[in-house]
Simulated scan of single mutants.
Amino acid sequence: MSTAPEVKTAAEEDVEFFYADVFVFVSDYLSPMVRRRINGSSATWCPRWWEHPEAGARLSALWLAWEHLRHDPALGMSTWWLHHADPHLRVLMDTDLGPFAACSPKDGHTAYPFEPLPVEPYDPGPGGAG
């Protein structure tokens, strides 16, 4: 008979989220909380954010960080705003460099307006990067 406590891995633990998924998080928390002048010149946003892969990844990261940090009653939300929300929102809403840069308050969503970052094939052989 072992007296050692049972240790669960993160995958085995039942993690209970406050928001069911990133879509609920954005619609029920982020959208009502973050209010900005969305004019296409100082800030922009796409109401179909999920159609922008970078935006989906960043907003999912924001949601998961929020879910984790909400359990810290002292510094959790301050940490989330300063180190997660503020930097991600600056990039997301950037009218020149952000993923919504080609979307506009007047014209709406523009899917994949820019090319992906250029990538050359990796060559692990002699003279390659490896």
Rank of each mutant, 00 (worst) to 15 (best):
S31R: 15
M33A: 15
V34Y: 12
V34K: 06
R36T: 08
I38Q: 00
N39H: 02
G40I: 09
G40K: 11
G40H: 03
S42A: 11
A43L: 08
T44A: 09
T44C: 14
W45T: 03
W45C: 02
C46S: 00
C46P: 09
R48H: 12
W49C: 11
W49L: 04
E51A: 14
E51D: 12
E54Y: 05
E54L: 14
E54T: 13
A55W: 06
A55K: 08
A57S: 12
R58W: 08
S60K: 10
A61M: 05
W63C: 15
A65T: 04
A65D: 10
W66F: 15
H68N: 13
R70V: 07
H71Q: 14
D72M: 11
D72W: 04
P73V: 06
P73E: 13
L75V: 05
G76V: 04
S78P: 00
T79N: 13
W81V: 15
W81L: 14
W81N: 10
L82K: 14
L82R: 13
H84Y: 03
H84V: 15
H84G: 11
A85K: 07
A85M: 13
A85V: 01
P87N: 03
H88N: 09
H88R: 10
L89H: 05
R90M: 05
R90P: 00
V91T: 12
V91S: 11
V91C: 05
L92N: 08
L92A: 10
M93G: 12
M93C: 15
T95G: 04
F100L: 04
A101P: 00
A101K: 06
A101L: 02
A102I: 03
A102W: 01
P105G: 01
P105F: 02
K106R: 11
D107Q: 10
G108D: 06
H109A: 05
H109F: 08
H109G: 01
T110K: 13
A111V: 09
Y112T: 05
P113R: 04
F114K: 06
E115K: 09
E115D: 10
E115V: 04
E115H: 02
L117S: 08
L117F: 06
